[in-house]
Structures are given as structure tokens and as C-alpha cells.
Amino acid sequence: MEAPAIRIHSLVKDFRIGLRGWKLRAVDDVSLDIHDNEVYGLLGPNGCGKSTTMKVVLGLLEPTVGGCEIYGVPSSQVKSRLNVGFLPEAPYFYRYLTGRELLKFYAKVCSVEPGKIKPRVTEVLEMVGLTEAADRRVGTYSKGMLQRIGIAQAIVHDPKLIILDEPTAGVDPIGSAAIADLIRALKAQGKTILLCSHLLAQVEGVCDRVAIMDRGKVVLEGKVDDLLSKHDQQSLLVDTFPEAARADVEAALAKHGAKLTGVTTPRISLDDLFLKHTGKGGPKQS
């Protein structure tokens, strides 16, 4: 069998804080397998160790105990990152470069063939919706635009594994929906994606599997569908539902030993409402 995209085995990460050798355990005995072509969500409250886990996976921090492998290659080796793209949290890039120059730089660092850099950069800019701002300096970008250029930077060299630390932080609902679409598109192309977030509604829509972390430990892990559906209940959607019909339905259900527990009006989410009324948002450029 092929090695999983990411394998984390009994990972512990301590940070030394203060001079007296106090230790803070940021990640506590985490073991995870993330399979090829899967969208995996790492969820949890602030400070529970999500970003730290990602950094260890990328070899940016050294594990205290345990280790990680990317497609079977230990993270401590540079060649494990040949096929990886990473968006750090609250990214901040070389301000003096334009968006296009920035992506060219990262493409070159990743040894993309010189002839392919230009079309690829244009394509990626289009994918994250930054074509209009491509020739402005990154220093003038808004927070959401920085996030988008960050995602562009993570995928510019067409990696197999993409690690996104809070991809939708600071991005408007239209942008978040676009990013969710982008993630689905990447999955369709056969990529593996590890993302972390605490915007749960968005995670729900894109992730195949999630792990919930708390204080450095994984407290729950599994397929989103399995975790979220209530298998013992079903719901009906009805257009008009007069009082008399309700009595009949209850009677019919009673015959089968079932019970109607409640009648509610389904609501669309605020996100959907926002999307419907703003269309393509953002300030117009002149």
C-alpha cells in the first residue's frame, strides 16, 4: 500500500518558555494519518496546537518526541517538501514586490521550469481572484487579499500536498465561498489538503475528515458525515403545511410507532443571504 500523504506518529512538542526551563506542551501525543486526495480539517480552540502541528509536519519546528512523514519521507529531510505548499497563519509577504513578482519569486524558488512560470502565475492569480490587483505592491493589499496571495503562493508550483493554516481568516463570505470552491477543485485535481480553522460552518462544507484538538490532544477524529448526521432522525420538507395535515401526518406516523418531534421553518444561512444580495462584491477598480 502507498504511504499516506501525512503520517504523524505520537507527536509531542514542548516549548521552552522563560529562562528556568519551564515547558509548555503545545502538542501532546498526536497520531494522525491523512490519506492521499483527502481534505482534512484540523479544528479546535485558540492555542490548542493546530499551527504547531502543521509546522512540525513541515519541518519548521523539531518534534520533542515522535515524528512526521510526508509521503513516507521524514519531515526532517528537505526533500519531503518537494511537493508541498504552505500558507502560514496571518501571512505577510515581501511588501516591495507586486503580487505577480511575488508569485514569480516563489515559483523560481520551487524550481518551476522557467518557461512555465509566466503562464502559471497568471493562471494562479486568476484562480484566487487577484488578477486586477496583480501589479500592485503587496504592501498595499488588504488583509483578505494577503490571504489570497498566500494561497496563490502555496499552489503556484502545483504541489501534491497543500497545507493551509486558517485559509479564510479575514476573507469576506464571497471570498470564503470562492476559497471553498478552490479547495474542492484542488481535490478534484487529485491534491491532498490539510487545513485548520475555527470557522466550523466552512469546514463542514469542504472537509472529508476532521480531527478536533483540545489542549494539544486529539479528542475526536472521523469522517464529517459520520460525525454530524443523527442517524436516528429524519426530516421532511413540505411546501404548505396546514394544521389539519399535521394531525393526519401525526396519526399516520403513530400507526408505525413513530412520533413527530417538531415542526420548524427551514432558514437559509446568513452566508447564503449575503451571497445572494452582494453578488460580486469588493470595491471597483478604476
Binding site: 519541518g59 519548521l60 505548499g85 504552505f86 502560514p88 515581501y94 524558488v109 498566500g150
Partner: peptide
């Protein structure tokens, strides 16, 4: 400071 080193070192760069 700007964590740009993170983005570079997360690429296959020694």
C-alpha cells in the same frame, strides 16, 4: 518578523 522565512523554508529550501 514577517514570517516570510516560514514560507521559504516550507519549500524545498535548505
Amino acid at each position: 518578523e514577517n514570517r516570510t522565512a516560514l514560507t521559504i523554508l516550507a519549500k524545498p529550501v535548505h
